[in-house]
Design a protein around this nucleic acid. Structure first.
Length: 435
RNA sequence: GGAGAGAUGGCUGAGUGGUCGAAAGCGGCGGUUUGCUAAACCGUUGUAGGGCUAAAAUCCCUACCGAGGGUUCGAAUCCCUCUCUCUCCGCCA
């Protein structure tokens, strides 16, 4: 969430930055401020009453000790009536605070000033490209046909088990997914200095709130319950990304300055309910309810976060470079960056069978937005507590990478060659259709 | 599912109605000593909110001893509810 002090001191700037997202949230700033002002007025009153009451209570204690119970009784009357005023004003102050905080939790992060202004993904800015789209002397097939011909993914049976939007990898197909994941995790842990995490894939409400998934986007995740007991529904949720558990790893902690930067890497399944998006171009592996993703998380000092984001994007790009896949990096415009993010780069890989780029990574600097929600702090040099900056990035999503890999390396005879970096993990350098 | 124990400051751990924001130890920070490190000694050290302020503070006030209620002039301490953790048993991968 945003710092209330920032809103108090720079309301117009915050309004302007929020307006650049084209989400209409700038209208809430005034509302936040009025609740905030009311809260402060009430608190001032309540606290002076409390101070008065505490003072008299101490006097009562002293009088009792001296055995002057009549004088003490008189003072007791006095504090009783103060107590009534306190509870009424306290109630109002809490209501104002609640209203303020509810609104604050719904405000998205403010985009950095250098983020390109724009309303939709059309205005995202191309930062750089790598590689050239492969050319084919035959008509390249889409991944669905390749997967079926090679027996890698059984779409029909996945549908039978869980419905549309689920995948069932089998044989070499399963092995290829596993190899891809392992290749990426090894790359990030062995070469990029990340430490590996294997977190719970069910998390509680606080964790979801911490990363900004809740309260606004609760309809995009799966909520679970225990058995048939509806009482337990909504205590745990399937993670939409490892960002949720891993970024929250140190929630409610005060880290030492020396602990930073933290670099975590986790491969987990990700579950997306995609409410409202059902049936929209969902055939195949590009948009599914469950997929694996290798996620990168950095927790850094505020001064380091801009550089850390650049580093993280390069680390994600390395995956694609090692695999020899063509990609481009975009900087998202103000209207397209995520709720918690202040700046985001997307990496899109070229999928020849689709004739389009697919988003396989999104790297975001959330600055202190999530740390504040998670109550994650660190002790800085001057011994004061500060909110660190939290970054997350995919490094990368498995299913779409799978698509690009198959479509890029398909051969005229229906086989798919495997790039060198992956071959040692797969223990094969070519996938051929079963005879 | 059954039985029991517990939740106190960065950590360990005292504290059963009136200067308790809380003993002590550890850790952290500052200093003395020291060729350097270590040790020793001295001092210091919670968080959040509000006020004051141009801003800030080693200024004033308030709250916080798992959470939420209650009793009382006054609660870490008494009462109720909830949550969580740990141990044992059962079931289970």
């Amino acid at each position: 969430m945003l710092d209330i002090k920032l809103i108090r001191d720079s309301a117009d700037w915050v309004r302007q930055r929020l307006a650049s997202r084209h989400g209409g949230d700038e209208a809430k700033v005034g509302e936040v401020l009025s609740h905030d002002t009311r809260r402060r007025e009430l608190i001032t009153q309540v606290e002076s009453l409390k101070a008065q009451k505490n003072k008299v209570s101490k006097e009562i204690g002293a009088l009792m000790a001296q055995g002057k119970s009549e004088e003490a009784d008189a003072k007791k009357e006095e504090t009783r009536s103060i107590g009534d005023q306190i509870s009424e004003l306290d109630r109002q102050a809490q209501a104002a605070e609640q209203a303020r905080n509810d609104l604050l939790m719904q405000l998205p992060n403010v985009p950095q000033e250098t983020v390109p202004e724009g309303e939709t993904e059309q205005e995202n800015v191309l930062v750089r490209s790598w590689g050239n789209p492969p050319s084919f002397d035959f008509h390249p097939q889409a991944h669905i046909e390749l997967c079926e011909a090679l027996g890698l993914v059984d779409f029909a049976r996945a549908r039978k088990l869980a419905g549309s939007g689920f995948l069932l990898y089998r044989g070499w197909g399963a092995r290829l997914e596993r190899a891809l994941g392992q290749f990426m995790v090894d790359l990030h842990t062995e070469e990029h200095g990340y430490s590996e995490i294997s977190p719970p894939v069910l998390v509680n409400r606080d964790v979801m709130t911490g990363v900004g998934q809740f309260p606004k986007f609760s309809d995009q995740v799966y909520a679970v319950q225990e058995g048939e007991d509806p009482e337990t529904l909504g205590r745990l949720f399937l993670i939409p990304t490892a960002e949720a558990p891993v970024a929250n790893l140190h929630r409610d902690e005060i880290l030492k300055a020396g602990d930073l930067p933290l670099n975590y890497c986790a491969q987990t399944p990700c579950f997306r309910a995609e409410a409202g998006a059902a049936g929209v171009g969902t055939r195949g592996m590009i948009r599914v309810h469950q997929f694996d993703k290798v996620e990168l998380i950095k927790v850094v000092e505020p001064e380091q976060s801009a550089q850390a984001l650049e580093t993280m994007v390069r680390e994600a790009e390395t995956v694609l470079q090692r695999l020899g896949l063509t990609y481009r990096v975009l900087e998202l415009c103000t209207g397209d960056i995520g709720f918690a993010s202040a700046k985001t780069y997307d990496i899109e890989v070229w999928a020849p069978g689709q004739g389009q780029f697919l988003e396989v990574s999104s790297c975001s600097n959330c600055e202190s937005f999530q740390a504040r929600r998670m109550n994650l702090r660190y002790k800085s040099q001057g011994n004061s507590n500060r909110y660190p900056h939290v970054l997350n990035g995919s490094g990368t999503a498995l299913a779409r990478l799978y698509v690009a890999l198959l479509e890029t390396y398909q051969q005229s005879d229906g086989s798919v060659t495997i790039p060198e970096a992956l071959a040692s993990y797969l223990k094969a350098d070519c996938l051929t259709p079963p005879s």
